[in-house]
Structure formats: structure tokens, C-alpha cells
Amino acid sequence: MDKIYTTLNKVIEALLAVIFGLLVIDVVWQVVSRYVVGQSSSFTEEFARFSLIWLTVLGAAHINGSKDGHLSMDFLLTKLPEEKKIKRQKIIQIMMAVFALVIMVIGGGNLVYITLSLGQTSSALQVPLGFVYAIVPVSGLIIIFFSYYNIKKLNF
């Protein structure tokens, strides 16, 4: 399981770096085309929005896995004795996995299914919106895997 964990982390890190690089190139091109060329490109704003969605949602999954970090206030957690701290961290990981399953995997999967079945496409890039939203259930599955891994790590 450690090999899957490290491989998945490296793949996500590389994908995040590529998405971020494309986002920077896109925004630079948008500025250059608007102020130097005098005509704004039609696709740059939409591509920036879609890549920011992917960067944010996939980045949240990566932070949960690689740093065992998430949005939390851990002041009270750090004050607990070690055995209660481990129990509380397991509860937190279980709650994160349940959230990821219900909201991201099931809800996001329904969103992807509906947008693909309705044939919704983006206006400038003509990309099916289901492909853009597909990162939500994928990231949910990644969060569930990382939560399971973090719980197993707490047992040892």
C-alpha cells in the first residue's frame, strides 16, 4: 500500500505542476493578447476557470494525502493526550472519507452524469462540461484512499 501511496502522490504532484504551468501560460497569453495584440483571446478566460477548478479540487486531495493536512483548527487536538489524539484523528479521517463519498463521489458523479447526458458543452472551448466536473468524483476517491491510508498509518 505504501508503493501505491507514493506513486499516487507523485502522479498528483506532476499533474498539479502541469496544470499550474498551463494556467500561468494561459493567463500570460491573455494579458499579452489583450494589451499587446489588442484583441483578447476567446478561450483564455474559460481555460483559466477550468484549470483553476482542477487545480483546487485535486490540490485538496493532494494535501489530504501528502501532508495529512486539511482545513482544521487543531488547537484542542494538540492539547489532548496521545491516545485520545490518535482516536480523534481517526474520527476526523472517517468523517472526511464519508464526506468525500457522499458529496464528492456520489454527488459529483451525478453531476458528471447529468451534464454528459444533457450534452452540455462550454461556450468557447466546446468541451463537454462533464469532463471538467469529472475531477470532483476522482478527487473524492483519492481522498477516500488517503483517509484509509492515514487511518492505517495511525494504527502502527
Rank of each mutant, 00 (worst) to 15 (best):
K3L: 08
I4Q: 03
I4H: 02
I4S: 06
Y5K: 10
T7C: 06
T7P: 00
T7I: 12
T7E: 02
T7N: 09
L8Q: 00
L8T: 10
N9L: 15
N9M: 14
N9R: 14
N9S: 14
K10R: 11
K10D: 10
V11M: 11
V11W: 06
I12S: 07
I12A: 07
I12Y: 07
I12N: 12
E13I: 06
E13W: 09
L16C: 08
L16M: 12
L16N: 11
V18Y: 01
I19H: 00
I19Q: 00
F20G: 15
G21N: 04
G21E: 00
G21K: 03
G21V: 01
L22I: 15
L23Y: 13
L23F: 13
V24E: 01
I25W: 11
V27W: 02
V27H: 01
V28M: 04
V28R: 03
V28L: 04
V31D: 04
V31I: 12
V31Q: 03
V31C: 04
V32T: 12
V32F: 15
V32W: 15
V32C: 06
S33M: 14
S33Y: 12
S33Q: 13
S33C: 13
R34M: 05
Y35V: 01
Y35M: 02
Y35W: 08
Y35S: 05
V36M: 05
V36W: 04
V37S: 05
G38I: 00
G38D: 05
Q39F: 07
Q39S: 10
S40D: 07
S40W: 06
S40C: 10
S41V: 14
S41A: 13
S42P: 13
F43I: 07
F43D: 03
T44N: 10
T44K: 06
E45H: 12
E45T: 15
E45N: 15
E46D: 05
E46K: 05
E46C: 06
F47K: 08
F47M: 15
A48T: 08
A48V: 04
A48S: 11
R49I: 10
R49G: 09
R49N: 08
F50S: 12
F50I: 11
F50W: 10
S51P: 02
L52Y: 06
I53Q: 01
I53K: 00
W54Q: 02
W54F: 00
W54R: 00
L55K: 01
L55S: 01
